[in-house]
Design a protein around this nucleic acid. Structure first.
Length: 561
RNA sequence: GCCCCCUUCGUCUAGUGGCCUAGGACAUCGGAUUCUCAGUCCGAGAACAGGGGUUCGACUCCCCUAGGGGGUACCA
């Protein structure tokens, strides 16, 4: 949480609309104070690139003791939704990027627009129509705009426009490349200001001093500064940041997830000569085999997903899971769900386009709020390297005190894996301990430790593992299992230390190397040769499951001993 | 097409004319440790897009070419 901005000072409403006097707006703030803003349009979740933009604007304001505004650009009435706004607020809050002015941090359940913080509101563009109209009149009156049909167009100057970008340096566009553009939509476009116009009016009204935004806006900037000039208002300073792409160089798009899932589905259909119905069947069976997850996916939903009629996450996720493919994380919420730590995510994403110099790479929000500067922003686009993010996340997880790791894991599972949490019950602590060095995200242990969550009679034994560890050497492995089975049944306390001692003793007594004891057990308990330390593995499963699985293994592999 | 921006290892980058036989991180590949996996430790390979200038001296400055990206909507 952002300690310098206690929630106690929120919940004051801005001045009433009538008090806001355009062109002479003068909030009770020092004019030289830094004011930045993050201005998402509420048409979906917060994209990871948007998170970086928000982060840098936040950090810049903090660094200079300024104000960070969150403004919702919902001028596109058709695509904007309150649910998106709510999601963006939640994502920002989760990240710890808290705004000084904008929608209330924790808005009313039924209306996100109801409570807003700060003197320059309202902070939803849909509530600022009166302002845009006043500015339009001004522009019309001074001859800087003219009607075009039922819309209005801004008249670009006939001279070159130079933008002094803080990152890129001066960028000059010649007048022949600057066309008059629509600032106010007519009935055909739904009426109201366009992005360019609302953006400029609001930046002016809110006295924004620094605009840090993605480089895709660079060519918009001549339009924007021309409007400031025409209005006789001071231009904010602009800093255009490089873009973030997928590892293959393609644009990081929300659709990537659906695309990946759909591709996997098509591959499956081809390979199995299947139909949507059989695929749905497969998903259902898979989900039931996991024994834990409840599936809420209708055949109709699946069909429309396959027909590209929807890209819904709720369909893509179970589909991908059943087909054993990993969906690329794109939105902040995806990363959160995948079990990335917010500090790590922010740290990594800050490194894409900014760095503190020297050989320092790992830092936190506090560091950024003290050290972030525009001078160290890069100019060239970068690719999002999930492997590096994963490595950062893994390192942070592994270095955590065990108690903290356990708490974080618990918290995450409560939200995203409640069934697994319930299944583990009292053994959760041991599980956390065993998987702290192994899981690179808070969700990865679920997959790594899949065997833990399967019903005892659903373990499938890997033939090669069975061959090598149970049947080889005249079924030496099976013999080990038989002796150990009863010893384990009679062990007074079934905890890691006691189990380890029992196995050590058995190794000594039988003069078998530990590998010839641990591996047969692994195969019996997990079906494979991979798991945490063997005593931890047994303890996590608990005595009942351990014995049940050994019995089933013995019965399955060698029905008649 | 036109306009604009960018260009150091596979990836993210350090480097602002001599400190560079180019540093770090992730990834990759070896080796050590261990009951498997992971982890940990040690080590290796890996880059200044190409061509012209400027300069005593260019990764660093200028130009050209090539490549990449963005923009070119009554979307934002």
């Amino acid at each position: 949480m952002d300690k310098t901005h206690p929630t106690s000072r929120i919940a004051t409403l801005g001045p009433s609309r009538d008090e806001a006097s355009p062109l002479r707006y003068n909030p009770a703030m020092p004019a030289d104070k830094v004011v930045t803003r993050f201005a998402p349009s509420p048409t979906g979740h917060l994209h990871i690139g948007g998170a970086r933009t928000a982060l840098f604007n936040w950090a810049y304001a903090r660094r200079h003791g300024g104000t960070f505004i969150l403004r919702i650009e919902d001028t596109d009435k058709a695509r904007s939704t309150d649910a998106s706004t709510r999601g963006i607020l939640e994502d920002l809050r989760w990240l710890g990027i808290l705004w000084d002015e904008g929608p209330a941090h924790d808005p009313a359940k039924d209306d996100v627009k109801a409570n807003q913080i700060g003197p320059r509101g309202p902070y939803f563009q849909s509530q600022r129509d009166h302002l845009y109209k006043q500015y339009l009149t001004k522009l019309l009156d001074t001859g800087h705009a003219y009607p075009d049909g039922d819309a209005y167009r801004f008249k670009m100057p006939k001279t070159a426009v130079t933008v002094d970008d803080l990152v890129l340096g001066p960028v000059t566009i010649q007048p022949e490349n600057l066309e008059d553009f629509i600032i106010f939509k007519g009935a055909a476009g739904g009426g109201g200001p366009t992005f360019h116009f609302a953006n400029v009016v609001d930046d002016a009204e809110m006295q924004v001093t620094h605009v840090l935004r993605a480089q895709e806006h660079l060519m918009n900037t001549p339009k924007h500064v021309a409007m400031f000039d025409a209005l006789g208002l001071p231009r904010p300073k602009y800093a255009h940041m490089p873009l973030i792409f997928n590892p293959d160089g393609s644009k990081m798009s929300k659709r990537d997830k659906a695309k990946t899932a759909r591709k996997a589905a098509q591959d499956w259909l081809k390979q199995h000569q299947g139909s949507a119905a059989s695929l749905h069947d497969h998903i259902t069976r898979f989900t039931q085999a996991q024994g834990l997850l409840s599936l809420d996916l209708s055949l109709a939903d699946l069909q429309s997903f396959l027909d590209k009629k929807t890209d819904a996450n709720e369909i893509a996720v179970p589909l991908a899971r059943a087909l054993n493919v990993t969906l690329p994380e794109i939105d902040v919420h995806d990363f959160r769900q995948s079990g990335y730590l917010k500090d790590v995510l922010l740290n990594y994403v800050a490194l894409l386009g900014w760095n503190p110099g020297k050989n320092l790479e790992r830092f936190d929000l506090d560091f950024l709020r003290q050290e972030f500067d525009i001078e160290r922003l890069g100019k060239s686009n970068s690719r999002f390297d999930r492997a590096k993010l994963l490595a950062f996340n893994a390192e942070t997880l592994q270095k955590m005190p065990p108690d903290e790791y356990e708490a974080r894991l618990h918290e995450h599972w409560q939200e995203f894996h409640p069934a697994e949490l319930a299944k583990l019950a009292d053994n959760f602590r041991g599980f956390a301990h065993a998987y702290q060095p192994r899981g690179r995200t808070l969700s990865e242990p679920i997959d790594l430790g899949r065997f833990v969550f399967l019903p005892d009679d659903s373990i499938t034994f890997d033939p090669k593992a069975v061959d090598k560890n149970l049947q080889a050497n005249n079924s030496a492995g099976l013999a080990v299992l038989r002796t150990l089975r009863d010893k384990l049944a009679n062990l007074p306390t079934f905890d890691p230390a006691a189990i380890q001692k029992l196995l050590d003793d058995h190794a000594a007594a039988s003069s078998l190397p530990m590998g010839q004891i641990a591996q047969p057990l692994r195969v019996a308990l997990t079906g494979s040769t991979v798991s945490p330390a063997i005593h931890d593995t047994l303890a996590i499963l608990g005595r009942d499951a351990t014995l049940a699985r050994i019995d089933r293994c013995l019965a399955t592999i060698c029905p008649n001993p």
